[in-house]
Design a binder for these strands. Structure first.
Lengths: 208, 208
DNA sequence: TTTGTCATGTAACATATGTCACATCTAACC
DNA sequence: GGTTAGATGTGACATATGTTACATGACAAA
């Protein structure tokens, strides 16, 4: 990682801010599957994603999950932005889906930069806005759509980030949508009949 | 409305900011039932609630609704905060539930104040955080709970804002929860059997 | 009092989704 | 090759929720 790469991954920031980030941030390499944040955990630093794919999801008290959205290079964990003022606890869980590189910044700097760098402030606000929108879309999906539409929608999101052949099991999809494996298998069969996907073992191929 | 009242309704702001608000904001009186914001509408100003109760909800393309949360005196519409950088369109609809007094602030001031007043920046960030949390709770409710729990949860929220006797019809509840009137009537009957509510015509009385 | 409108009650049925039980298949490892 | 664990297929059934159709009840205007 170099400061050059930082400029590429996070365009539109001010020059002195790049220096500031470079001098104060810690770079952390995580492995696919590593947990980055759990519901209830106190947030100690702001996280920016440099590389890799991070999955954000909601967990209830019985351990049931619900997939919310992905973060990738150039994006920030809103929960860690939003907690900057007070050292609050997280309301979401995050897990690395691929090997990933994360930049962590002490919370007090985050606060300082907000008033010091207009570009940082804009980055944070835009980040909020897009996460807010993701949540609203999620609410739409659950409130207004049946499982078949939600499944299609879900696969679509995966394909955007991961390419047309998804290495995923029916059980994992069921967990992400808080459904059950049999239901997902059933609906996938129907999607296959409609030529939307081809089902392989451990993988689903998206058509069109 | 006086600048004194402003200090009471929005505590913890800096003194010069109160003056700035007072000199630049427009006060708008709206009637119960008035629409303040529609999905797709371009946001022209930031809205702060001085008095009254404002309902925020999501609408789909077929006009189906889903209740999100209430805003009351001392709170701000996050959508209008979040849109400050670019003149974006709203993703939510807002409606006055009671007669209400709204303070509107031109978007460019909002932007300026963020760097000028630390207290404004904190107000905005805290506002984001609580709305974000509301949305996460909503997702929890739809994803993990059955309709009976969601109904109880919904009535609970109403009672907190409106007192123990709710002037509301079963049809209105059904609209807010994207369900149907018969289902709500059925579940209310069960709640009445469990002594959680008493059902009156045009009203529901919350017990305990 | 009568009438009409809107709110509510209710039974029967339709449908989506979840659950259970078990069969079958595939890849990996001995 | 044979064994095994995990992934997937499938039918039968349970349950929650939505839908239809109609009855009843409450209130207000005429």
């Amino acid at each position: 990682m170099t400061i050059e790469k930082l400029r590429v991954i996070f365009p539109n920031l001010e020059e002195p801010l790049y220096e500031d980030i470079w001098n104060n941030a810690t770079i952390k390499e995580v492995k696919a599957g590593d947990s980055l944040l759990r519901v209830g955990q106190t947030i100690r630093s702001t996280m920016l994603i440099l590389d890799g794919l991070v999955k954000l999801y909601r967990e209830d008290d019985e351990g049931k999950e619900y997939f919310l959205y992905y973060l990738q290079g150039g994006e920030a964990c809103s929960m860690s932005l939003i907690c900057a003022i007070r050292h609050n606890t997280s309301e979401m869980s995050a897990k690395a889906l691929t090997d990933a590189t994360i930049l962590t910044i002490p919370l007090d700097l985050m606060d300082l930069w907000m008033s010091k760098y207009k570009s940082w402030y804009q980055f944070v606000i835009l980040s909020y806005r897009s996460r807010f929108e993701e949540l609203l879309k999620t609410i739409d999906a659950i409130a207004f759509s049946n499982m078949d539409e939600r499944l299609e929608n879900y696969l679509n999101k995966q394909v955007e980030k991961l390419g047309t052949t998804l290495k995923i099991t029916h059980q994992e999809i069921a967990n992400d949508l808080n459904s059950s494996r049999e239901v997902i298998s059933r609906l996938l069969k129907k999607m296959e009949a409609r030529n939307r996907v081809v089902i392989h073992r451990n993988a689903i191929e998206w058509i069109k």
